[in-house]
Design a binder for these strands. Structure first.
Lengths: 341, 341
DNA sequence: TCATTTAACTAAACCGGTTTAGTTATTGTT
DNA sequence: AACAATAACTAAACCGGTTTAGTTAAATGA
């Protein structure tokens, strides 16, 4: 079973490569290939199950029908889910997805973008480290189609699909306040990410709006690399009688996971002694002890919209910007036992 | 900033495309390009940051430096983790990964394989639906490099990296028996997958070896599509006084998750009334109530080895089979509270 | 009836690299 | 001095498609 090429088909049917190529690309009619010839070609192709070499096709058409997906970490449930939806939607649209994890390293992200461009992806979906303005700017200057997801550059004028981080946390904070919690701690990751800043700001704004004074506030920023080990100590520190919090809000699902673990180990009763809630969740938050109240991100929408916008951008006339391409999605709020509602 | 091509470099340096190409591919010396010319070329390329078009490169060399990964579902933590390790390892080796989820549909899997072949991937890593012998056989007949992971075809002579499903469950079952549990139920998915069969067999063998009679056994096979809703009813049925089990072993992590949920809802005390354990885990199994004892799969090893074997296969002289390319990895057993140890 | 369209098709250039098969000038050998 | 060997390089073919710019023969128009 040796491989069948366009020229073989042409030879065997006594037509030109051109004819075969045109017919296979649905350009037979407009190029006046007769109905019979078209049928002969299609029949032959079907019979011998011919499929064109995508590299050759891509090379000559200047596009690869491939989109690149760059995310911080495919092993993280949040990104894995997004990847799943991106891939499914892309496939519907006829695109293949190549992906890579940047592990939050700007240099890695930069290399990945370069490498994907070499591989002639037609467009990029990037959840950026947000420390790589240089590459993002370059993409934009070159009118290369791309969409940022989950994280965007607030001072750059790009397409993006993000969630309302501020609003999500504001809602969660308000909920805790409404339940009578007065001393709400906010546990987050040391990070310049705008998304993280917004979550912090949402927390602060909610406290301000409810007139909570300085001593009712406690913000703890853990290091991305050491948060697992730091968590227990931090929790111990803020649950001492002097500066005891009565609620903790975690800015990410993995912080909530470790926070819960630490609280359980210290035998602190949730929600009685300390109520907790999390921004973003993972698949077992409804099964942990106690189930964790969480701000839910619309992962499917993020994935679907990112692809839709990108596809539009890739085909579209670059002059006509039809769709709105800056999207801030609302979050949901899932109340469970951990917040004591 | 318009794109720089090989021919531009050649023109600007007054050398041939050949010279540039050879030097960039580290074939300068063997082709007797003088040291100075080599340096000139390298300096120029570095200065202007030239990188070759991978489609053109792939087309002319007949390889794309890309590997395809086909898994049941990228959103599943298990496969997401494997994908992460596969991608990382592949990148180390200079390969890009394209992936797609088959959602357990053989036809989808078949299409994906075809599509990836069209895209000229150099090799495939497949976690097959195991209902697609036809395509796997064809790959093999054509000497196309591929490695099966997680699931293999027992009657086909292919490369694979799987885990010892039988042994893993045997160990877990024995552990429950040793803890004095006499009526152990086995909850699994209706499936022809050999992996699933092996898990069932491991359970049976362990019972046999310990002389557990027929009424100490209970196997429940749930439907892949409806297990979430069926679980509660099933659990209720086997916890009636007449045929009450004192332990439940779940053949997958998602079954364990739903089983735990159902048991909690029915207010059945774990492990006092019913002990539970799971084959494979998810990231919060140590935080759920109670933490779940689980057979742990070596995800990193699966990913790493799959890539190693595939790369070997892709470069390697097909005549010389150096490495062992059928690998059955041992599982670990993580004891937590749910089994009552 | 002769010029013009049109229908049906194709040769050849092209995409941007790699590779084969040379070429030319210099050095080495006898 | 004559010839082979070698160093340093390049023209052109090639990968497998797409696309442009034609060609040819029949149909139409004035």
């Amino acid at each position: 079973m040796k491989k069948l090429y366009l020229k073989d088909i042409a030879k065997n049917l006594n037509v030109s490569k051109t004819a075969v190529s045109l017919v296979l690309n649905n350009k037979g009619d407009e190029n006046k290939i007769s109905k019979e010839t078209q049928e002969r070609i299609i029949a032959y192709v079907k019979k011998y199950n011919y499929v064109p070499n995508q590299l050759a096709r891509g090379l000559s058409r200047g596009k690869s029908e491939t989109i690149g997906l760059i995310i911080p970490n495919i092993s993280d449930t949040f990104y894995a889910q997004i990847a799943g939806f991106v891939e499914a939607r892309a496939m519907e649209m006829g695109y293949t997805v190549v992906f890579s994890s940047s592990y939050e390293k700007p240099e890695k992200e930069s290399k990945l973008i370069q490498s994907m461009l070499n591989r002639q992806v037609d467009g990029l979906i990037i959840s950026s480290t947000q420390k790589n303005e240089k590459d993002i700017l370059r993409l934009q200057e070159n009118d290369f189609p791309f969409v940022l997801i989950d994280r965007h550059y607030p001072n750059l004028d790009t397409n993006y699909v993000i969630v309302d981080n501020f609003g999500g946390i504001y809602h969660a904070t308000k909920h805790l306040l409404d339940l009578g919690r007065k001393k709400i701690g906010f546990v987050t990751i040391k990070s310049d990410l705008d998304a993280m800043q917004q979550r912090l700001l949402g927390y602060i704004k909610a406290l301000d709006d409810h007139g909570v004074e300085q001593d009712g506030r406690f913000v703890s920023e853990l290091d991305q690399k050491t948060y697992v080990t730091d968590m227990a100590e931090m929790i111990r520190a803020i649950t001492t009688p002097e500066k005891r919090v009565d609620a903790l809000l975690f800015s990410t699902h993995y912080l909530a996971r470790e926070g819960l673990r630490a609280l359980n180990e210290l035998n602190i009763q949730i929600p009685d002694e300390v109520a907790i809630a999390s921004f973003s969740e993972m698949s077992a938050f409804d099964l942990v002890n106690p189930p964790i109240t969480a701000v839910i991100q619309p992962v499917q929408k993020i994935g679907d919209l990112a692809v839709d916008i990108l596809v539009d951008e890739m085909k579209g006339d670059h002059m006509i910007k039809t769709k709105d391409k800056r999207i801030v999605l609302d979050t949901n709020f899932k109340i469970r036992k951990s917040c004591g509602a």
